[in-house]
Amino acid sequence: MAGFGTLLFTWLKGKLVGTDTAGNRYYIERGTPKGRRAKRWVLFNGVTEASAVPPEWHAWLHHTVDAPLTDSVRREWQKPHQANGSGTTNAYLPPGHDLRGGQRERATGDYEAWQP
């Protein structure tokens, strides 16, 4: 949840630009003073986690593009955005990880130990 100051600033000076598939809302500053570019920010839907911002909105937030990229630019081979799951139950655990039993398959014949 955003702080009171952020919500107040958004209510007074923000203009909604759009939302992403996760429900995050993206704003731009109304009435930007001359000689300064408009501020851009996001109000997260749920936990504030920077990795929850998809690439098309990340580019817009950081003034890389003037308008947010739309799904019409998405290629068929691109996967949908996923937030970083480290530290959560969605974290990747490779084979042999302690939390997956600590056992993994033995190395195959292509491994050769280094000898000084």
Score class of each variant (00 low, 15 high):
residue 32 T to P: 03
residue 29 E to A: 13
residue 9 F to W: 10
residue 96 G to N: 02
residue 73 V to G: 00
residue 91 A to I: 10
residue 23 G to P: 14
residue 6 T to D: 14
residue 29 E to W: 07
residue 61 L to S: 03
residue 15 K to P: 03
residue 34 K to Q: 14
residue 50 A to N: 15
residue 16 L to C: 02
residue 94 P to S: 11
residue 93 L to S: 08
residue 85 G to P: 03
residue 88 T to P: 02
residue 96 G to R: 00
residue 73 V to P: 00
residue 35 G to A: 11
residue 94 P to F: 01
residue 41 W to C: 01
residue 113 A to E: 00
residue 80 P to F: 10
residue 85 G to N: 03
residue 50 A to K: 15
residue 21 T to M: 09
residue 73 V to Y: 02
residue 106 R to H: 09
residue 37 R to P: 11
residue 31 G to T: 10
residue 10 T to H: 04
residue 25 R to P: 00
residue 47 V to G: 08
residue 99 L to E: 15
residue 48 T to R: 05
residue 75 R to Q: 11
residue 14 G to S: 01
residue 86 S to L: 13
residue 44 F to K: 09
residue 99 L to P: 08
residue 87 G to S: 08
residue 46 G to D: 06
residue 109 G to L: 06
residue 95 P to F: 06
residue 86 S to N: 08
residue 116 P to C: 12
residue 65 V to P: 03
residue 41 W to I: 01
residue 102 G to H: 05
residue 32 T to S: 13
residue 93 L to W: 04
residue 20 D to M: 09
residue 93 L to A: 12
residue 45 N to P: 00
residue 93 L to C: 05
residue 26 Y to K: 01
residue 55 P to W: 02
residue 25 R to C: 08
residue 21 T to K: 13
residue 103 Q to M: 09
residue 10 T to F: 06
residue 116 P to R: 15
residue 16 L to H: 06
residue 43 L to V: 05
residue 13 K to D: 02
residue 66 D to F: 12
residue 110 D to A: 04
residue 49 E to I: 14
residue 45 N to I: 01
residue 49 E to C: 15
residue 3 G to W: 02
residue 45 N to V: 04
residue 52 A to H: 09
residue 100 R to Q: 10
residue 23 G to F: 05
residue 82 Q to A: 01
residue 45 N to D: 10
residue 105 E to P: 11
residue 84 N to S: 11
residue 32 T to M: 12
residue 46 G to E: 07
residue 95 P to D: 13
residue 57 W to P: 09
residue 110 D to I: 08
residue 20 D to R: 12
residue 108 T to F: 02
residue 90 N to M: 07
residue 2 A to V: 04
residue 22 A to M: 08
residue 3 G to C: 07
residue 64 T to M: 01
residue 1 M to E: 00
residue 111 Y to M: 04
residue 103 Q to Y: 08
residue 95 P to L: 09
residue 3 G to I: 07
residue 65 V to H: 01
residue 106 R to V: 10
residue 89 T to S: 09
residue 64 T to H: 10
residue 96 G to I: 00
residue 21 T to H: 11
residue 59 A to T: 02
residue 5 G to K: 00
residue 15 K to N: 03
residue 66 D to C: 12
residue 10 T to M: 06
residue 101 G to V: 07
residue 2 A to T: 02
residue 72 S to R: 09
residue 66 D to Y: 12
residue 99 L to Y: 15
residue 24 N to V: 05
residue 68 P to K: 13
residue 13 K to I: 02
residue 111 Y to W: 10
residue 74 R to P: 06
residue 14 G to N: 03
residue 25 R to A: 11
residue 58 H to I: 12
residue 16 L to V: 07
residue 66 D to Q: 15
residue 25 R to F: 00
residue 51 S to G: 04
residue 48 T to F: 07
residue 104 R to T: 12
residue 33 P to A: 14
residue 47 V to I: 11
residue 44 F to H: 07
residue 10 T to D: 07
residue 83 A to H: 11
